[in-house]
Write a protein that binds this DNA or RNA. Sequence first.
DNA 1: CAAATAGTGTCTATAAGACAGTATTTG
DNA 2: CAAATACTGTCTTATAGACACTATTTG
Lengths: 294, 294
Amino acid sequence: MAVTVDVVALTLRAGALHVLLVERGGHPFQGAWALPGGFVQAGRESLDAAAARELAEETGLDATQLERVHLEQLGSYGDPGRDPRMPVVTVAYLAFAPDLPEARGGGDASAAAWVPVAALDLGGRTEAREPERVTPRTSVEPDAARPRPSEQGPGRGIDGGDSAPRPVGDATAEDGPGPQALLPLAFDHAAIVADGLDRARAKIEYTPLATAFLAEEFTVVELRGVYESIWGSPLHAGNFHRKVLSVPGFVESTGATAARGGARGGPRARLYRAGDARLLHPALLRPDREESVR
Amino acid sequence: MAVTVDVVALTLRAGALHVLLVERGGHPFQGAWALPGGFVQAGRESLDAAAARELAEETGLDATQLERVHLEQLGSYGDPGRDPRMPVVTVAYLAFAPDLPEARGGGDASAAAWVPVAALDLGGRTEAREPERVTPRTSVEPDAARPRPSEQGPGRGIDGGDSAPRPVGDATAEDGPGPQALLPLAFDHAAIVADGLDRARAKIEYTPLATAFLAEEFTVVELRGVYESIWGSPLHAGNFHRKVLSVPGFVESTGATAARGGARGGPRARLYRAGDARLLHPALLRPDREESVR
DNA sequence: CAAATAGTGTCTATAAGACAGTATTTG
DNA sequence: CAAATACTGTCTTATAGACACTATTTG
């Protein structure tokens, strides 16, 4: 039975959550977007190593940069028929990465790109309502949140800032995110991405892994941005600040302050780096999912 | 590449956590204990179905009984060399079962038995100190916790109450829990069991799955016993009681009361059944692991 | 009846959230 | 200087844990 690894690599670009996708060149789902992945080299590498290898191949990261990426196993998927060609079990991995250089095509010349999660058709499993913007200004949102399949299409490969804060042509100015042409994914990858997002949302509650989305030094405001982007809801700035600093081992001060203050004024924020805690205690609980799962 | 499923099935017997193991008849690790499992029927069943099938085969459970068993995917293990014969990826599952009839040999005539978790050599990854019993005396070491491999040995298969509160022959009366002949497991199964225990300890914090270890109707005291056995530490009876009843959807009253009171006196406890919550909110946090993972 | 035990009441410490206030920076 | 904004102070409410107490049952 064939065994592959697939990686759900998440990063934040311009305040919006993005996932690394590749465009399929070959047969099933040709032209559709899929998770980066490939066959495990049986007997020659561990599953973890295979996932790291695939991730490196698609992102062009070297070993040093890879160290700053968090990579963990997400789960395995093996429903009969998930690949029309043959029975395949895939072991999915979840990666949290700081803002990386643009993706590059994998070794096999396929196109690779960071695509906003909000642009994907996850079969209704989005859960996190799109962030009602905190401040008047958009904190999260995604000017760039909706690349259309055709735009990202075949052959384009790497195209500079396709997901950068440049309005992608539609922008009806209104925010009503009319379910507008969501990108479908190949195979069962929509379910895998949805599971990855669920995991990510839960994981940053009780681990300091939100810091893995940021550079080595960061401000509390940036950290709050990570939570808001992943949870999709605004957090109370003051309370968040105090909470982060009060959890032992979450962050430690560098003593320095950011180069400049807020975009339109305000003091310069202090800089922190990740602390030595592996678990947050007490945890940062998500704002009421109102007893969600009952 | 070969793909198997292995099941870490947990249950409570006489107040101690037990895991279902089979004795290996065939070559690698012959005579050693291993997790029940087997090859996935490629293209003909899902991973979940394969795990359920393997569990049913070893326990002799019919579909009705299986419904009361919680089964979830734990993770996949594929280090090269984990099976000396060939490269094998195994997808591990975790099961929580109420006290079941004795295990029976699998279809392949191997012996199967419920073995106390405390008797296993998990490579130091036990974490949960054995419950210091609430009273002054000893701290570690439950009476029944140490069946010796030879006793459970080959061919014996089902032997009634091997883990019942009958001192297993050694009992030097002293508590010094000399690392006394812990059972080794085949392959990397010790690591898998340890991961399963970690998952179980975490899962009962924020889900009502502790009820999966009990009969359909149970008392709060029994439920507390589940937590104490899995976490390995005593809980405050009064506070636990109030907490369980205050979490919405955790348990619901049946109106009835238990047939009799405590062993040595006391009122008859009220009976409850599992409620409709999928998540506990607020969660039942483990007593201080004192910032454990820092 | 004495001891054990299910269940409840109360008090304190901690934590979360709402809200307001201060000082610092940008344009 | 006005507006924005990083950060801190304070108050209220929810929760966790320690402890004490009542009522019911067993031997």
